[in-house]
Computed example of a mutant assay.
Amino acid sequence: MSETDLIMRDPATGLFGFRVELGRDCRGVRMQARRNGFATEKAALVEYRRLSRQRDARRRRPRLSDTVQSVCEDWLTGRVQELQPNTVYNYGWLLSLTYPHVGRVRVSRLSARMVERAYLQLETAGYSRTTLRTVNLVLAKAFGEQTGRTLGAHKPREADEVRPVWKLSEARRFLDHVADDRLHPMWRLLLTTGLRRGELCRLKWSDLEPDLATLTVRRQRVVEDPTSQVREKPPKSHNSTRSLLLDPVTLQTLTDARLWAKAARASGYMFTGRGGQPLRPDTVSSRFNQLAVAACVRPIGPHQVRHLLAGSLLDAGYGIAEVAERLGHDPSTLMRYYSRVNAERRRQAAVHVADLLSSDDAMGDQAGPVRTQQHGRHLTGRANEPAHSGDQPAVDEAP
């Protein structure tokens, strides 16, 4: 955003003004400066730049003689206002893992070998490679933005373990087991929409439109560490604010639950505890795993349902944009983290490749290209059809 975009014009008076962030004072209180009444945009811009220079002059600039820990802590402090509280905590925790190894090293003396050795020691201590790759991402960003230098260290290796994902048979078994559970509407909604646990906890009955068979996701509830407080905030990204179409069974289940809640004069939240308070996201995970164990399926957490739905819908022939819209994700993120290779598709690909390589000597050399084109059309047609196997649903079947 340019500086001129920060200058606002009052439509009533025609005068210009702006608001500038000045950071926080010694007590941590947020400071702002508002200026209005400028006759021209240029005059307002001059004052805005003066206040910005005044603000930047009070900021301590990192020096190469500073330690890695002080540089990282200054970077995180400068972003408290733009980041969510739980994100600030997570970044701080990730960076703190490196402090015992390179925290006291001066920035001018930090080498790529030191950083890589720190990653190796953390892996030996039991931290996963996924965590180490996230540590590298945050550390490189903090170090680069504060010093203008790059770490130069190689990224930690990706994890060898394949992320566990339910089969559709496990999802069906779980859904059958929770048919009599008090939160059965929530579990069915989870399995048919792949909502995040925070989005489930924040849903209100006003978000449901029975006439349109839609459910709107507007906000979520998150747990803020280390105090474990729960607060409401916007969804994870702009793609997460979405309207979901519901299948008839799920819609009827939610409609019946709303009638019961209205008769019982319950709170406006869809899913609550026995005391009437909205559920906590960590409570949803704990209860999900308990029910999974009772249903004799793998207790891998509710988030893995999103991976199940993404893979199943892609295998059934739905487009990337359709699946990403339902899960509230960016299409590129969906393909990077949620797509998986289906075993039935792998078998079909092997058979089709063999068909392409097979030929009939009696048709001669001229018929070869024609046969290849025919087989190519056959392959394309078969590949676009929904793959149905013992564990694959029909296109319109809800898991």
Rank of each mutant, 00 (worst) to 15 (best):
S2V: 11
E3K: 07
E3S: 06
R9T: 14
D10S: 02
G14V: 10
F18Y: 10
V20F: 10
D25E: 02
L45W: 00
R58F: 03
R59L: 11
R61P: 04
P62R: 00
D66Q: 02
L76R: 07
R79Q: 14
V80A: 07
P85A: 01
V88H: 00
Y89R: 03
W93N: 14
W93D: 12
L97T: 05
Y99E: 02
P100S: 01
H101Q: 03
V105S: 05
V107Y: 00
V115D: 00
E116N: 00
R117G: 07
A118K: 08
L120N: 13
E123L: 08
R129E: 10
R133D: 00
A140C: 13
A142R: 04
G148R: 00
G152L: 07
W166Y: 09
L168R: 12
L168V: 15
F174Y: 14
F174V: 13
D176L: 12
D180N: 15
H184S: 13
M186T: 02
W187S: 02
W187H: 03
L190K: 00
G194L: 00
R196T: 05
R197S: 12
E199C: 04
W205I: 05
D207M: 06
E209S: 12
L215S: 03
V217A: 02
V217F: 04
R218N: 06
T227H: 11
K233F: 05
P234T: 08
S240P: 04
T241W: 08
R242I: 03
L246Q: 06
L246F: 08
V249M: 10
L251S: 07
L251W: 08
Q252T: 09
L254T: 09
K262D: 14
A263D: 12
M270G: 06
G273I: 09
Q290Y: 14
A292C: 07
A294V: 07
R298E: 15
R298Y: 14
I300A: 01
Q304M: 15
A316N: 03
A316K: 03
G317T: 03
D330N: 15
R336K: 15
S339D: 09
S339E: 05
A343L: 15
R345H: 13
R345T: 14
R346Q: 13
A350P: 11
A354S: 08
D355T: 11
P369T: 04
R377M: 15
H378V: 14
L379S: 11
R382E: 11
N384M: 13
P386Q: 04
P386T: 08
H388P: 02
H388L: 10
D391K: 05
E397P: 04
P399G: 01
